[in-house]
Write a protein that binds this DNA or RNA. Structure first.
Lengths: 188, 188
DNA sequence: CAGGTCATGTAAAGCGTTACATGATTTT
DNA sequence: AAAATCATGTAACGCTTTACATGACCTG
């Protein structure tokens, strides 16, 4: 007996735990602020809802990765979080991990396009237009952040630049497809 | 009384219900075949697992949107499905719907990049390399389908072309970023 | 004082993956 | 004869969204 005690082995961060820990490490202090920042900056590649954030903050505290203390604004309750040293370790471990990073896309527009041979071909064009408009709205949101890119730490500026690049490509593809569909079709 | 009977109102298709219905409409007949085709063609923008497919096929049958009949291969049980006319209607309704199509991305590589200012900057490069490699594997899979694009119905060929375009842009961005990180960094 | 924002949380329901379990047929 | 493929399914678990509920503070 008396086997060498197995290392406390950083419990794997849950998906939402990852954003939260990173945000808290970046100095974002409340659940509310995390949600705001996620919606402004990461939601195009990583979303989170209040229903996840608040319970997860508690779980992270139970695991000793963050520490919260009440810091009300007048009579309004407010919990302010910061990383513990175990939290820093867990964050570093995640950032340094070799694990194949997860990657998922779910695009209903593309699925409709895929099945558009089963239906009225006019719907195809409408669908592509809808996809483009959606991407254009997304692009506008990203472009609104661009002026601040200079003051951003490099990592944040880079995700912004990648987001813009991908969104632009998407829009260009849609425009080309729309052109092809509107110029060749009607002449037949 | 005797209000005009409310239309039977096509029950909304669940997310997985959408792929399945589309696949069955395209002539894919068994749960197993649906999974194969999804993995080969749509998984880059819409995945599905057996654990969803088989129960969902039953639910769709309960709703009268597909009809299944046993068609064993020798002693091996096998269920073959086809669309009912209600199923065709539901598929058309979905394809024609104005509803903002859902769109979600969850990219752990980008999230790591976003938080890469909190850690050793060398990790940033490693992370981008990992992202690029992942996209390159994806691109290889898509390119493998390209030769068949001519015989594909237009909708399928278009999703392939869009997938390739986006994946290429992603890879190009990574290559540029890698170049910037490796040429400017070491000289400081 | 009304409307917006700040702020926290829970409950239920839905969605999805993973792992397990089984077995026949086909290919090498 | 082994390995791969065809084929179906369930159970447990985990993740996420949505909707609800509440209330204080700030701005016009």
């Amino acid at each position: 007996m008396a086997l060498p005690e197995p290392l406390p082995a950083a419990p794997d961060l849950t998906p939402t735990g990852r954003v939260i820990l990173g945000m808290v490490a970046s100095g974002v202090r409340t659940g509310y602020d995390i949600k705001q920042l996620v919606d402004k900056s990461t939601r195009h590649f990583w979303a989170a809802s209040y229903g996840q954030i608040y319970p997860e903050l508690k779980r992270l505290e139970d695991q000793g990765l963050v520490r919260g203390r009440p810091e009300p604004t007048g009579g309004r309750p407010r919990m302010v979080y910061e990383l513990t040293s175990a939290g820093e370790l867990a964050l570093d471990a995640w950032l340094a991990s070799d694990q194949e990073p997860s990657y998922e896309v779910r695009d209903e527009g593309m699925l409709k396009l895929f099945f558009s041979d089963q239906a009225d071909p006019a719907l195809r064009l409408a669908n592509i237009v809808a996809m483009r408009e959606r991407q254009q709205r997304k692009l506008a949101q990203l472009r609104a952040l661009e002026p601040m890119a200079d003051e951003m730490p490099p990592g944040k500026a880079m995700t912004l630049s990648l987001g813009i690049r991908l969104t632009n490509s998407f829009i260009e593809w849609c425009e080309e497809a729309e052109r092809r569909l509107t110029t060749t079709r009607p002449e037949e």
